[in-house]
Design a protein around this nucleic acid. Sequence first.
DNA 1: GCCGTATACGGAGGCTGCATCCGTTTTTTG
DNA 2: CAAAAAACGGATGCAGCCTCCGTATACGGC
Lengths: 197, 197
Amino acid sequence: MNVDGQQGRRPRADVQRNRAALLETAQRHFLQYGVGTSLEAVAKEAGVGPATLYRHFPTREALLAAVLQTRSEEFVARRADIEQLGDAAEALERWLRAMEEYLSAYSGLPDPLMAAARAQDPDNPLTIPCDVLIAATDAYVRAAQRAGRVRASVRGHDLFLAACSVAWIKGTGTEETSVDRLRALIASGYRERDTQA
Amino acid sequence: MNVDGQQGRRPRADVQRNRAALLETAQRHFLQYGVGTSLEAVAKEAGVGPATLYRHFPTREALLAAVLQTRSEEFVARRADIEQLGDAAEALERWLRAMEEYLSAYSGLPDPLMAAARAQDPDNPLTIPCDVLIAATDAYVRAAQRAGRVRASVRGHDLFLAACSVAWIKGTGTEETSVDRLRALIASGYRERDTQA
DNA sequence: GCCGTATACGGAGGCTGCATCCGTTTTTTG
DNA sequence: CAAAAAACGGATGCAGCCTCCGTATACGGC
């Protein structure tokens, strides 16, 4: 039993192949059917037995976390873009949108994420990505607050919850215009009152 | 096949007994395990076979709708209380809280409700309760707007979505203080700026 | 009060998905 | 190239969904 623990021996070739195939297939299935998709189907389409899937990713959350991990590279790139902006309020706005899109990539994603965020369960592989998101949001919020563009009582965690909510709504299949309206409502809740775009 | 269609014959006694037992048991199970609870378990505990449950309530949504129906009497009573208030903004506030509690009564309830609200699917038994809630919210919103306490751009549907979001968050097990903060954030989004409590 | 029939019941069973065990195959190492 | 380590995957047990159909039950007329 090695799979991806780092011991003396070099990881076997088939392990890497299978892992890659599983991740690629899972990504596609999550995209098409949501995070509740059949893991058996994923395994079959990846050309491996169910046991192999479970050996690589003991739980659905572990598989999800691994898929998100590969996805997050592109996400980090976005973050670099955002940080070049001088306007802190605009940066926060864009960050929230980016996070929202990240969270609504797969239908049903917000639920396991919230479950992980709730308690600091170190066994849950989604806890870390979650904490990262909250910390980043908080940084953007503080910057915008220093610029006097966001109300002082707001915290990063609040807007993380808000983004999760919006992402959840999107995942239920609600029309885009309704989602836009909700987002606007929230925005006018955290923006400083005398703000002028 | 009669179950509850109104024909010439009087409904059989066991039908009514079973229906009542199923509703009572389902209510308890939804409360304890959420809307995803095992229907087989509900049937067994109600003392009937699975087929009887499905005969009375062809889908999970139908059972849920029926349970909510019985629950809604108590909800209507609340509404009468609220309407005695002279303050339209306070009335809206209380209505939103009441709706939020209604929506978070069973964990996972917001999801099927949103699915029903999305498209006017007349086959979905949850569509009607959903539309009722939206219409009622809209009435409260208009009243508060006439009193100049809520921003003109806000619609009842927006606050319905917001209430669903908050209820969803509650259902994920998030701490109550975080939920309170999110609710406050949303409130400062729809309230008129120069409002004084 | 009894019987015939409409009506409803419920166990059995097919199906899908989850998760694990263990005999077999593949890969690496020397 | 052989032995050992490592991973594979089919088979399996379990739970829940939903339906079919033979059986039981309540109703209403007599």
